[in-house]
Nucleic acid binder design. Structure first.
Lengths: 211, 211
DNA sequence: TGGGTCATGTAATAGGTTACATGATTGC
DNA sequence: GCAATCATGTAACCTATTACATGACCCA
């Protein structure tokens, strides 16, 4: 049987925390792996139905427990086997699509200063990201019998921090190189001062967590 | 009018090299921005038709010139304006989906050694990537009247190198941390020796360039 | 009794890959 | 003449996001 990545996210989450509902899963994704993965309800609920039908997960402790009208799920043995098989298979690279680099690559055609503005924007977003990662890190530890998942969680967190930090370092040197290559508006001043209030609202509606 | 990213890639490429055909564009994408962007024919040809209909690009020097049966395109003034407008707008973050980190995050459920295997795989791919980037870099320079696009190209290349290098550095330390956390098969030997011939063929059919 | 958020789900749509079909040109 | 590659295009399919619809529960 073929499954999409969403199904494996569900199996993985249930291997860590049995009893999660679809709603919980969305929250968990945003809160703990949001910096490298996203899921929407439109993916999760159909996948839950599918996995249930295939016997890889099962309904558990229906609403009657505590809150009403919410459906928890648990892994079946078949589900756990399926997850393990997937974990053993080499990963796929996602098709790369970085719009920031695309705009930078074509920036010669843009108005002077546009590249510098994108660079600043990029650095801002990375700073926010680094902040979010540190918050996650602070919320992870402190378990008396040490959580067996923790080493792996810390590795992925470390990856996020390492790459974000590298991006910030690159950004700084890139700004300097740009200033040398683009005489810009004022030759000696690095960048125009008044650049507040960039419009970011419309792109922030969905998929929480990141940035 | 709303366009997808493919359309802007086309406009951008034509702003650099007028006369390119759809086939050329696919090649150019693979060869020069393949490490952060991909396009398939199924996207390019419909977009060319659309853009022509909107008057943003125009057919130029049809096949009769040199080779037969190939259609070149050039930017119109409207097309150049459209490209500039897009370049001035803040970029969108792509939805993050890193399957490697996903498998690492859930690795507690996997067979012992699986995480280490993914890590080695990851490092191999990054080494190949770094190699590809160096090849691109070597092919870029050497223009007597310096190419005005070059500063931007070098910035994006530098980004690729910086991030790939950071990923490699993280990988090395991650392997050490893993070895400490996972007793693995043999406690003193880092990783099992015989790991040749991972199956990579089936996932490499399409979208050239990268990794 | 009214607002917020918990909770589940579906339909419309967008965006993109893959496989296929077709034919010209080039080099041997 | 044959294979490889140049070159264009289309159709089927898959994945995923967004917006919408619905209703329960909580608390003030």
């Amino acid at each position: 049987m073929k499954h999409n990545a969403t199904s494996y996210v569900i199996l993985g989450l249930l291997s860590i925390e049995p009893g999660h509902s679809g709603y919980d899963m969305r929250k968990a994704v945003q809160g703990s792996i949001g910096y490298f993965w996203g899921e929407s309800y439109g993916q999760i609920y159909p996948a839950l139905k599918l996995l249930t039908g295939e016997g890889l997960i099962a309904r558990s402790g229906t609403g009657s427990n505590g809150r009403k009208r919410r459906q928890g799920y648990v892994l079946t043995e078949a589900g756990r086997r399926c997850l393990r098989e997937w974990l053993a298979v080499p990963f796929h690279d996602e098709p790369p699509r970085n719009e920031f680099l695309l705009k930078l690559f074509f920036a010669r055609e843009a108005a002077p200063g546009a590249a510098a503005a994108h660079l600043r924007d990029f650095e801002e977003r990375n700073l926010r990201m680094l902040d979010a990662l540190k918050k996650i890190e602070a919320s992870v530890p402190a378990d008396k019998p040490p959580n067996p998942h923790q080493p792996y969680w810390l590795l992925t967190l470390g990856f996020g921090k390492a790459l974000t930090t590298a991006a910030l370092a690159w950004g700084e040197s890139a700004r300097a190189e740009l200033a040398a290559a683009e005489p810009s508006t004022a030759p000696s001043a690095r960048v125009p001062k008044k650049r507040a209030a960039r419009k970011t609202a419309s792109s922030r509606k969905h998929r929480g967590g990141k940035h």
